[in-house]
């Protein structure tokens, strides 16, 4: 084998090495981040929530749907329903705590972090739908009335996207509002809660 043939052989080998280096790297850079624009994610979980003004802790069933609009921005809607007989701790009289409670929020999220581990921040205006006792001292049995109250939710959390369709999430939230339709002073629904679990996602558009 002459010197020319050896040089050509080395060039050929080098070119295949360069190609083999580039191909897996570009593949990795695309596939390594599941969190991309057009990602749709959703989940439902039980969220222990503390109504600290009422000194009551309840189990809320929390569900959300979120769509990633940009690399850092998402739009999100979520709801909470008080689980039937879900009051875990109950220290107040019925007229000071709703018999039924549901809240619905819609807002935006901001996501920090690279690749598959994200820090999530959400701000969501919404409403709280609650059923409160009316005139508890005058009428037996107690009459109840539904009302809709303005509310908002602030949420911070983290998510880890470990597969093409699944991720783990853990969040802490604070929300506030007032139920005005009460026979006594208005009832604060200031609360903080936690939620965590397995979420599901899918990319709705192909790159």
């Amino acid at each position: 084998m002459g010197i020319h043939q050896k040089i050509i052989g080395l060039f050929l080998l080098a070119s295949t090495l360069v190609y083999s280096q580039e191909k897996p790297w570009s593949h990795w850079s695309i596939q390594s981040s599941y969190f991309q624009p057009s990602l749709l994610r959703a989940s439902a979980t039980i969220a222990p929530t503390r109504f600290y003004s009422q000194q009551a802790t309840v189990a809320l069933i929390n569900g959300f749907v979120e769509y990633v609009l940009e690399n850092r921005i998402s739009v999100r809607g979520e709801g909470n329903i008080m689980a039937p007989n879900g009051k875990l701790l109950y220290t107040n009289s019925p007229e000071k705590f709703p018999r039924n409670f549901t809240s619905i929020y819609a807002g935006f999220g901001y996501h920090l972090g690279k690749r598959n581990w994200k820090l999530d921040l959400h701000a969501e205006p919404g409403i709280a739908i609650s059923e409160m006792a009316q005139q508890p001292f005058l009428i037996v049995p107690v009459a109840y009335q539904w009302s809709i109250s303005p509310s908002y939710m602030l949420k911070g959390g983290t998510s880890f996207y470990f597969s093409k369709y699944c991720h783990f999430f853990a969040e802490i939230n604070y929300s506030n509002g007032w139920i005005r339709k009460t026979p006594l002073t208005s009832v604060s629904i200031a609360q903080y809660g936690i939620s965590a679990g397995l979420g599901f996602h899918v990319l709705t558009k192909k790159n």
């Binding site: 409403i127 303005p150 005005r180």
Partner: peptide
């Protein structure tokens, strides 16, 4: 906007 407020503890306003 939908705004609610209290008038002390004897009435509320929407």
């Amino acid at each position: 906007d939908y705004i609610t407020s209290d008038i002390l503890n004897y009435a509320h306003r929407t």
